[in-house]
Amino acid sequence: MGTKICKENLQQIIKSVPMLSASASRLLQLTSNSDHQLLDVVNLVKTDANLTARVLKIVNSAAFGLINEITSIDRAISYLGERIVISIAIGDCAGKLFEKELSGYEAAGGDLWKHDLRTAIAAREIVVQTELEVSPDLAFTAGLLHDIGKSLISDYLQGTVPEAIELISSQDSLDYLEAEEKIIGVDHTLAGFELAQAWQLPEELAEVILYHHQPGNASEEFRLLVYAVHLGDNIAMLGGFGTGSDSMQYRLDPKYTDYITLSPKTLANVMLTVDMEFEKLEESLNNLGRETT
């Protein structure tokens, strides 16, 4: 039996989790704006000495196998790309949330981060390979953040896995989201949305967090982005990287076809790219969430 979460509890939980640093928060604001330049990102990162050091450390880590050390932050950022810089910035402040063991979903520590990273890569690939009118890097960031609510409610879901699975197989609940709501009163999209408010995330990211399982409910201006993450999420789960008990216990919104044209062959290509990119990125970002020394 899970413990019910009421509105006040949820605010309590949010108060206890890490806040975004000022630079991470400004980075998310900046990069969700479609007419920003990479130079703006560089200038912003330069204002944060810790972040600058982390970016340089990662670009020079063994994962990238560079022969010559990169010492300038400008070069490091143009080499890594915006999405990796954002991953580092988010990971630096909120790594604990992503690395947390989700015992309420029977998922190990790090599973959420892997699922989010794969969703991010897949959402970006969907945008690129189907030529959607969405920023590929924004789709990536949105994918990274979409399930953050799970780490807020997981503790309250402890011991509820068989009950949730049963609710869905008996069709009392439509999907795992409804089961969460039935058992503890709050689902992971709503919990994540509350955190998005506390973190003052840009509206489009907050909508992705709230509607990634019901993309049709997103406001029209952000719907394409939400659909891209919705598909990315499903691709991550099908690829064997869910977060434990809720994997594939959600519904694909077949209306995505009104927005995205995806052939089985393109989907296969996206899945293959996710596997290949994931290996590279996971290695380079593997110290996310660990204390920086």
């Binding site: 999907d175 499903n234 789960m237 099908l238 594939m248 216990q249 959600y250 519904r251 694909l252 919104d253 077949p254 076809t257 995806l262 052939s263 089985p264 989907l267 296969a268 899945m271």
Partner: peptide, 10 residues
């Protein structure tokens, strides 16, 4: 996944 369409029947 639930409610899958043909494309997603990988």
């Amino acid at each position: 996944v639930m409610d899958t369409n043909d494309t997603f029947q990988i």
